[in-house]
Write a protein that binds this DNA or RNA. Sequence first.
DNA 1: GCCGTTTTCGGCCCGACTGTTTTCAGTCG
Length: 641
Amino acid sequence: MIALALHGVGHAQATDKRLGQSLALPRNKLPSLDTRHSQLATRHSQLATRNSPLRKKMTNSQLADTLDLLADLLEFQGANSFRTRAYRNGSRTIRNMTESLATLVADSKDLTEIDGIGKSVAGKCQTLIETGSLPQLEELKEQIPQSVLAILRIPGLGPKKAAALYNELGISTLDQLKEACEAEKVRELKGFAAKTEKAILEGIQFAASAGQRIYWSKANELVEELREHMNSCKAIKQMEFAGSYRRGKESVGDLDILVDSKDANKVMDHLVEHSRVADIMVRGETKMSVRLDSELQVDLRVVPEESFGAALQYFTGSKEHNVVVRGRAKKMGLLVNEYGVYRSESDAEDGGLGESIAGATEKEVYEALELPWFPPELREARKEFEWAESDDLPELIQLSDIRGDLHMHTTATDGKNSIREMVDAARKRKLKYIAITDHSQRVSMAFGLDPDRLRQQWTEVDEVNDELGKSFTVLKGIECDILEAGGMDLPDDVLAEADWVLASIHYGQKQSMQQITDRILGAIENPYVTAIAHPTGRIINKRESYAVDLDQVFKAARKHGKLLELNANPARLDLNDIYCAAAKSHGIPIVINTDAHHTGGMDVMQFGILQARRAGLTAADVANTRTWPQMKKMLPARVAT
DNA sequence: GCCGTTTTCGGCCCGACTGTTTTCAGTCG
């Protein structure tokens, strides 16, 4: 039901709606620019609530959020930029870790042994985990209204300028800033002038409404559109979309187009001709930024052929990956920039760069640094350099490795197609087996199945299998709810007749971590459950994960031989990349499923694959790359009978 | 604030673009 509802609330629609509302209202009825402040304030108060000692375990993501907030506020105060960077590095490290920091602290492990975490950050994390709050942060919050953070989102305003506005004019909200610009007060400050005022007024509405990242799937649609448009530009020799899009990140904040051309102006003019381009933010000789009608920013960069690989490497990122790459280069006496790799010794005298030793392709750039070419999905400065060091880069899973899809719905509940239609769609996608997993009775809004209706459906599955013969297999499955009070929504004797039982949480998502974790552990211990579907319940950009202690879930899944799902719905991608990597490190097989509610829904498998690649998963790590008979052997004994 | 195959102190990735300047700071990616 939830997945079905999602089809209607894509980001573009939400944005269009917001825009439409804004435009339709008279100017004096415009929604307050401070809406975002209150959202920020809510977020921070949520953080504060989450930090309360009543909460048992602080998650890595909460700790990372807190460190980021600390960095934001310190930066605003004019703190040493290397210090704030250290906090952000610490935050990123923690966010990327597969083990829970709270567990490490509970086990009396030394956090400073983690790369990038020193005495100070370790101490802060320990305090946060043990007490739920951080005195230094509380103090900062009293000194600086957090609404100033919204001002930092205005393009062109960074910590220095925002601090000047706050210190000189007492501006701490977007509304105050707008008033001051209109009264021409801002131009009186040093470093500001009329043009800046104008830019602020233009950027202020953008800051109030934008900042939302779009799903990778939506970004992909825009990329396809732009690619087709740009392909007709004769001046382009090579073109790639770089950035987080190329890395397959679950959400994308902007698009980066990299072009190899001798005529940058022609390429820029061509992009501007696209009907979606709403305005030009900056335009230089080789670089242009435009805003699309959907408010998404697109950066275009034009480089010569001999630099295309270096530029592609550079603009693909991530930033953190590049920091490591450049640091490594430096140690080797080399300089890496977006134009190539250079020997750096000769740059002092002639003012130019040293001898260029690479740049045309990414491969030769990495080779010059004695590194293998990294698949973009791995370029997050997580494990990739470690793997490269030991010559152990994983051979990442591909869409064509997938043989079965084990989570989908039909007209029996909230799906749009019949079993036979789902079979046809699966066969068109070269799959060999599927599991029909409609909702169980608790999901009444989706007309969930009771034991009678479920057994009736299984009779139909038998009929379909008879028709299909050996060429394709339909499994008798169920997506059985884990009840609020614990326990499964269908009796064991029914579940025992299934080939494949997904257990999932749809209700009681607000419960405490202990309650939710206990419910999931109960499901894992049920002998008939084969996998946990969308294990954290998060909806990207819309709903936080429910509170669940995944350390315990991983241990239990490992012990009882259960699988964990990577739900490929682009709004879910649950488990995410970090947790998929954690599951792998616990030896738990992942099953990537589409949760299709109609035949076209099976196309989302590609998004799950991208996420799995980001986790460093190989075909062997993913259960449904196997044939069904092979896969059955991985399941607890009773299903294999 | 973090870190060490030059370093326990002195570095910390690098360049484009803009606006406000009159040689550069701030911002961005």
